[in-house]
């Protein structure tokens, strides 16, 4: 564990808590894409399939349970909670998740690290699911970014949520650089490339988020 990875995990946790805070306290999910939340639930479900078989540390298991619990409860709130669901604007959330999931699944079947980790007892299925979750996580934010461009006024909590979500993966990139130089044989091209793509997708959001913070004006993405 290094400071970049810990900071990354804490930023990721904070992003989820900000979203749960928004939904739970003001009972509103205005501006939040349900499609992105459902994709994140799939990302965690396929990433942590081996939560009970491959134990790493109390921290690791606890964080996995928090991410699984929070992502599924956010989806539940937005789908079934009688007050929250009313603030979900499905007409603005039109991105079709399958056009993201299918290519990620095909890519995971074609390109995964199974061939380099022979000694790992993990089954091929788990490896493909894990790789699928990496690719899916990289693009899962797209429905949310599309929705942000459609909803003119982005409220602060939503802006902070997306910012923290992007920042966590940027911190993970620093973690991978650190581990590459401090641990031998630490090379994970698949993880690195999908993490880089994921962070680059936030580039324009970061730009407008920084501009709104610098000029102290409301965050607005160009249509």
């Amino acid at each position: 564990m290094n400071i970049f990875r810990l900071a990354g995990d804490m930023t990721h946790l904070l992003s989820v808590l900000v979203l749960l805070l928004k939904i739970h306290t003001i009972k509103s999910c205005a501006g939040i894409s349900l499609k992105t939340q459902e994709l994140y639930a799939v990302v965690f479900a396929t990433r942590y399939l081996d939560i009970f078989t491959s134990y790493i540390s109390p921290y690791n298991t606890m964080m996995k349970l928090i991410f699984l619990g929070s992502s599924f409860s956010i989806v539940w709130y937005m789908r079934y909670h009688k007050i929250v669901r009313r603030s979900y604007d499905k007409d603005q959330d039109t991105f079709r998740p399958y056009i993201l999931m299918l290519p990620c699944l095909i890519l995971a079947l074609l390109i995964n690290e199974k061939f380099t980790f022979k000694e790992i007892s993990t089954s091929f299925f788990l490896f493909v699911m894990w790789t699928f979750s990496l690719y899916l996580e990289a693009v899962a934010i797209l429905p949310q970014l599309v929705m942000l461009q459609r909803t003119r006024n982005i409220d602060n909590l939503t802006g902070q949520y997306v910012f923290l979500l992007g920042a966590y993966r940027a911190l993970y990139i620093l973690n991978w650089i650190y581990r590459y130089f401090t641990e031998e044989h630490f090379v994970h091209w698949i993880t690195w490339i999908s993490g880089l793509v994921q962070t680059l997708l936030y580039a324009d959001f970061f730009y407008y988020y920084f501009q709104s913070w610098k000029n102290n004006v409301k965050l607005q993405l160009p249509a």
Partner: peptide
């Protein structure tokens, strides 16, 4: 220890 496993990250 867990650190050396490839999937030791969240």
């Amino acid at each position: 220890n867990g650190e050396s496993k490839p999937h030791d990250e969240l």
